[in-house]
Each structure stands twice: as structure tokens, then as C-alpha cells.
Design a binder for these strands. Structure first.
Lengths: 346, 346
DNA sequence: CGTTAGCACTCAGACCCTCAGAGTGCTAAC
DNA sequence: GTTAGCACTCTGAGGGTCTGAGTGCTAACG
């Protein structure tokens, strides 16, 4: 792919894309000549631009406007031309300072992450809450609220706390509850929630005919406690950044984007895809495969606790986006969040 | 105030306002004649309209447009002309159905409330989370996560659960923790969090010289647990409804509104004001006293648990809003939420 | 004296035209 | 292969005109 273009064509493509990112305007041959290392006439640049258009890297909104990058153009730029620099120390410090780090709960930490992603990039910050299924069980506690009402509190290895109110159809004494939680804490520690659920189901099947009521209750109770309905929430911050983007001056497009933000399912699917990948993942325009957010790009990276990947975070903005600035921000935030989560679960 | 206008002027004002609410356009004398019970000529209506403008209820964007209501006009309409009907049974049912009621946690309940407010009204739903300070303490539990790390879980009378991670500078055994929580649960049940904090401070002062280490620790631990940083969050749903409103076609105004939504402090102050009032409160335009949301109106109502007011909920939208439809929605939602919260804390 | 018809007046918005500027592609010369 | 020159195209701004909606005023009417 990179071979399709000679050195000079690549330079010109890069210059066009960077100029367009800066100005949001179609770029003419004239403007490019000043940005190039070698002195070239506009006419020469025009020839090259015509070739680039032929090959699908550029297109022109109309005859007498300049050129703008296509999605293929951005993709080539990101894959081949762009060199990502690490984040400067002072910017790292500025981001880190936002997490005035005093025993934050995980959920607050992730809210902060979403906010800093947005403020540092001036695009919209996204953070996927950890998928409980994949986190590691650490501790469970049952709090008796009334005769038939129990609050289950469970904590994951990475410090995420989850509450669940359970209505009982039979009464359990405080010591029953203690026995049950002791059993679970001893037997299940170190399993993922998913594994734990499977184990519970297996035990329940095995013990079906058994007379050990307490065990049965334990199994049923913990099953209820782990039933994770609030799984996979997404924290979105800085949606108003979209209002600043000239390419969304069209209200119709803007509405589509905002509605997608409210439904969240689209963003969830996209962030979920990022779980598999190492490092920073970039989705440009229709690569997202959702027409609601046409013209948008997504930069994501997975964050992790001690025991592996927990979720993804990133930013979403128009495809015309300063990738070289945004990619390090996402990368740094992911590693910072991972580090902070590691600390937390000492 | 109501005496300033005779019967006919009031009818005409009402017709103008309702027409404007329906069309978002300035209303002409001609259009009004068809909406009036008594047959009048446009010329007569014009005379009345001129008077209404004189008195500040109407204004005209320019000479040859019709009239639009001023804030004073809306205020008079809401106070005097509008008769609020109760919500129809089928609409009540439709709203209530959204709360498929199976052991929801309070926070999910309130999220649902915000969503139904938005979807039922097609404006933006707002719900203020209860101010912990004012809720009633019910139960506290300490979960030992590691030697120096404790998770405090406390539950309020109305079923709100709050977690807090506490770092210790000295080690506490499991039985210490149990003693401490027993002490707190016995001594403090039924107090508001605010009262409880005061009580703790008083005890701490009194026992300063004392050698009862356990008590000292109990006091310090619970003080940390109750330190409510996440207090007063606001749940906003359906911001994209603003994009539909023709009066916010102007991007500048739209941006201001969205930024206010992101900062939340403005909305918080407004909802907080609604805590004092009985019934549904209506703030029109500049009555909100925040220029960021100029041209917006806020309809709010307080919701409560068994033991008094917990917080406020409502909707925000353009001042041109079908008050007669929206007010019952807010009122009904507030009472529904109150009822559900009452059930929960049996 | 309140109501109404008639009329002159105003103004926004649609429409059309023109023009300047930016940028292109092509051709021919370097 | 590169560049200068040139004819061509298209957008967007600016300005003029026209229409329709709506007004305020005046005078007549019951």
C-alpha cells in the first residue's frame, strides 16, 4: 500500500491532510507549496493532486474548490505518514493533576478519565465501565436491611464495588448470611465473575437433590447478587465539543450524533470491539460501520487492572482530527488509568 | 394583575400564546380570529393586540410580523389562563410501565425517572440525586478489603446505598469493625446524615481525653465514611431534544445551553431552589437568573421518601413550551417516584 | 363608542443577477 | 519532468426586485 505513492506524493498528501485538519477547508495547490520542504510550483502540485484523487486518497467537493482527504486518505495518513510522538511531560502532568488522587472509587476515577480525555483533546471523551463478567471476584458481603430484604455488596479485585438489593422469599438470619458469605469468599476468590456464575450453576445442578438448605440458599443468593444488569455503561463527557465542529454545522447530522450518544448502544459496540486490541485503535469514518456517526473517527485504547483488560476508553470526534495529538492523549490516559487501578487494588 | 385585562383580552392572549406554542411562529391577527369563541374581525384583534403589547405581554420581532409572547405574557398565561388537567390514565400507565418494578436500586429508579420525563415531554429530563445530608441513616457496614483498606457501605432509610473506600493508618481487626458498626447502627439509626455528623463531632470532642480507643476509631472511621463528595449529582436525559427546537437553530445559543448542561452547577442551583416549594414550580426565562439558559423554562417538583423531601426533578426546555401538557407530567412523575421510594423502604 | 372595512405602509424572505476570487485542467514551452 | 499561461468552472457575497404577510391608521357603521 505504501508503495503506491512515491516520496513526493506522500509529502504532498501529508501536507494536504494536515492543512485540512488545521483549517477545515478544502486545500488548494497554491497553499500546499508553502508547506512543502522542496520548492514546487502549484501546477506540479496540481498534477500530483490529480493522481492522488485518481487513487482515491482525495476528492473535491466541486470543480473549483481545493481537495479534501477521503477516508482512505486519512487511513493512509494514520498508517504510514503519521509519526506519533509521546506526550510532553508538562501535558502528562497536567492530565495527571486532574486525578487528585485520594482514595477515589473506581467509578469516579473513570468519570475523571472521561473528562480529562475530553478536555485534553477538545473532543468527546468515552469510557466504558468494566464488564463485570470479566473482572475478578474478591469479596462479598450481605447486609440485612429488613426481614426479607438484603443488600449484597461485592468487590472486585480491581476495586470496583457493586451493590444489589435482593428481595427474599424466605427469611435468613444474620448468621446464615455470614456463613454464606464466608463460604463464597473462601471458595470463589480469584475467579472471574463469569467463571463464578458457571461454577454456581454447576454446583446448583449437582446439589439439587441434596438437603443442605444453606448451600442451596447460598447459591441462589449469590446468583441474584451477581446478576449484573448495569453492566457495560458508558461515560460520555464533552459532547458539546461537537457543536464547535464546522462539519457538523448541519443540524441533521448533529442530531443523529447526539441521539447515538443517548442510546449508547452504538458506542458500546464500538468500545467493546476495542477490548481485543493491544495499544491504540483507530476507526475512521465508515470503518465504524454505523451510519449515525458518519464522518466521525474513534480513537480507543484498552485499560486494565492487575489481572488483564477491564475495558476501553477513548475519544470520538470528526474524522478531520489532529490524530498526532489525540492518539498520545488516549494512549497516555489508558496507561495512567491502568496504573491507578493497579495501585488501588494493592 | 388578572384585573388588568378584561375577559376578551385574556381570551386573545391565550389564543396567541397557544398558537405560538404550536407553531413557533409569530402570530398574526388573522390567524387568531379562527381560534376565538366569539367572531371578531382581524382589525379588532389588532387593537387588542396593540394594547397587550403596550402592557408588556406581547412583542413583535419586526413591524410586519405577528406578535410573540414576552416572558411576562407566559407568566400571566401560566398563573391565570392555564388550567392544568390531571394526566390521563393511559398516559399514567405508559409512564409507569417504564419502571418495570423489580427491586430497582434508587439510582436506577431516578435514571428511569429522568428518561421518562424526557420521553413523555419530549424535552430534557432532570433529576437531582438526593442530598445525602438530608437523608436518614439506616445501616452501616464495614468490609475489610486488605490490612489497611476498608470499604464502608451505608444505606439510608429510603434505600440509597453509598460506598466509600477508606485507607487506614492503623490496622483494625474484623471484630473491631463489627463492634464499631454495631455501635453506630444502634446509636445513630434514625438520624439524618447531617445530624449524625454533628453528633460524631460532638462525641469526638467529648471523648478526646478518653482512653477508649475503639470509640475514637469508630468516630473517625464513620466520619470518613460519611464524607459525601458525590453529593448532589444531576441526571440529565434527552439533551438532544434541544436540537429539535427551532428557537435554538442558532448554534451559539445551543452551545451555551449544552455547556451549562455539562457543568451542571447551574442546573443544580435551580433544582436546589425547587426543594423548598410544594407542588410544581415553574421558572420562565430570566426568572432562572442564568443567562446561559436564556429563553428556557424549567418545570420542577420535589420528590420525597417517607421522611420528607429528598430532591427535585423536572424538565427544561424552551420557554415556548406546552405548559398544560408538561406540568402534569412533572407532577405525576414526582408523585410516582415518591410512591416507589416509599414502597422500597418498607 | 366599540367594531369593522379599507388602505397605505413596512419588512423579511425568496428569487435572480452579477461579479470577484479561488482553484482547476490543459497546453505548450522550458 | 516541470512550469508558466490561460481558459474555464464554480461558490459565495452583494445587491436589486418582488411578493405576501401583517401592521397601524382612518373613516364609516350600527
Amino acid at each position: 500500500m505504501a508503495d503506491m505513492l512515491n516520496e513526493r506524493s506522500q509529502q504532498i498528501l501529508e501536507a494536504i491532510i494536515e492543512e485540512h485538519i488545521a483549517t477545515a477547508q478544502p486545500v488548494g495547490s497554491r497553499a500546499i507549496t508553502t508547506r512543502l520542504p522542496t520548492r514546487l510550483s502549484p501546477a506540479t502540485v496540481r498534477n500530483v493532486m490529480a493522481d492522488l484523487e485518481e487513487q482515491g486518497f482525495l476528492c473535491s467537493p466541486h470543480t473549483s474548490a481545493g481537495r479534501i482527504p477521503t477516508e482512505l486518505g486519512y487511513r493512509f495518513y494514520v498508517d504510514t505518514l503519521l509519526q506519533v510522538v509521546r506526550l510532553g511531560q508538562q501535558q502528562q502532568d497536567r492530565i495527571q493533576a486532574e486525578y487528585h488522587w485520594q482514595g477515589l472509587q473506581m467509578s469516579e476515577l473513570l468519570h475523571t478519565a472521561s473528562k480529562t480525555l475530553s478536555s485534553a483533546s477538545s473532543y468527546t471523551g468515552l469510557v466504558m465501565m468494566p464488564r463485570l463478567q470479566k473482572t475478578i471476584f474478591r469479596h462479598i458481603e450481605f447486609v440485612k436491611l429488613s426481614s426479607r430484604q438484603i443488600l449484597a455488596v461485592f468487590v472486585t479485585q480491581s476495586g470496583l464495588v457493586q451493590n444489589k438489593l435482593i428481595e427474599l422469599d424466605e427469611e435468613l438470619t444474620a448468621s446464615d448470611l455470614e456463613q454464606i458469605s464466608n463460604y463464597l469468599n473462601q471458595e470463589m476468590a480469584g475467579l472471574s465473575i463469569k467463571e463464578m456464575q458457571n461454577r454456581l450453576l454447576a454446583e446448583m445442578a449437582k446439589e439439587k437433590a441434596l438437603y443442605d438448605h444453606l448451600l442451596q440458599r447460598a447459591l441462589r443468593l449469590s446468583e441474584a447478587a451477581l446478576d449484573t444488569d448495569s453492566d457495560g455503561d458508558i461515560i460520555i463527557e464533552g459532547t458539546s465539543c461537537f457543536l464547535e465542529q464546522p462539519e457538523f454545522g448541519d443540524l441533521e447530522r448533529m442530531k443523529r450524533v447526539f441521539r447515538a450518544f443517548e442510546r449508547k448502544s452504538v458506542l458500546f459496540a464500538l468500545l467493546d470491539r476495542g477490548l481485543q486490541n493491544e495499544g491504540v485503535q483507530i476507526l475512521i469514518g465508515s470503518e465504524t460501520e454505523y451510519s449515525e456517526i458518519a464522518g466521525c473517527s474513534l480513537i480507543t485504547a484498552a485499560y486494565s487492572g492487575k489481572r488483564g483488560t477491564l475495558g476501553t476508553l477513548g475519544i470520538i470526534g470528526p474524522s478531520r482530527m489532529p490524530y498526532s495529538k489525540v492518539i498520545p492523549i488516549v494512549g497516555y490516559t489508558a496507561s495512567l488509568v491502568s496504573r491507578l487501578l493497579d495501585q488501588e487494588s494493592d
